[in-house]
Amino acid sequence: MATQSFKTYFGRNSRQGLWYVPLLITVVGAVILTVYTDDFASPQNLSNLLSQAMPLIIVAIGQMIVIVIGGMDLSVGAIISLTTALLALDAPAFVLVPAVFAITALIGLVNGYSIVKLNVHPIIATLSVQFIVVGFARILRPVAGGSVPDIVVSCVAGTVFGIPLTVFWAVIVLLLGWKLIHGSRYGLHLFAIGGGVSSGQEDAAHNFGISDQRNVILAYVCSALFAALAGFYIAGRISSGDPGVGETFALDSVTAVAIGGTQLSGGIGSLHGTLFGAILMVLLSNGMNLANLSAFLQGAIKGAILLLVVSLQSRKKMGL
């Protein structure tokens, strides 16, 4: 029994992927930063780091759900931008907040429906949806500005019992993600669908009685909703709307998920890996900022890391 669970988490063929690699690198990086900088390990800095990492963690969880089924969602960045733009509209919060989540769920539905029912490649579908969504965000709010309802800001900033609200966000989001991915029948079905896709037998899950179409559509809705949650968090932090704020999140979330040991071909991955991947990404930009590296070069380095990570993953299919 003990070896069984050891294999579940660490085995070469573990369904959870190589999640401990980013964990190790993160720990090593944190130790180095603690030694070489004065106040890296201070509660203040750690809480700053967590709030920097939070949006990426949230988006990456959603991104991971679609990557596990062998898909990809490039519209998450646009959804974040749209969410902040919508929240900065001049309307009461009890209208805005439900409207935001309804609209983003609809976007996820459009993604999922075009992929599953209309047979469009996931990358093409989400890429074109991304253009449409960013277009709408820029019509709503051509330049950054406006202000979001106070309730949104107070949901994100501030402390309860001296603990920053971000910590509560982290706990809730991770519990939600854990339940969805590793603690429910739905999550198991996701892995089954993805395992079939990555081994070239796309009907496998369907033949075992898993309603793959509905689950895939639902996965894209989940990914859109997690992106909206991240947008909500960002809107609370910057307390205004910005149509360009989400621009880098599509690729960054894919990078975080890939670093976290999730196979881009589907079927293998874990929530904790994604969490460590996202933290590693933020730690990296934190370190690069401390080293005074140009923002342009930081972009290039992130791209290079993405290339490195994905080229280390083995895949059978060639092309897209």
Partner: peptide, 20 residues
Amino acid sequence: RVSAVIATLAVTVILTGIIQ
């Protein structure tokens, strides 16, 4: 056998960063 979207997008991001 890297996903072509990811690979070529990353190449663009790298080249853009260097040029900027």
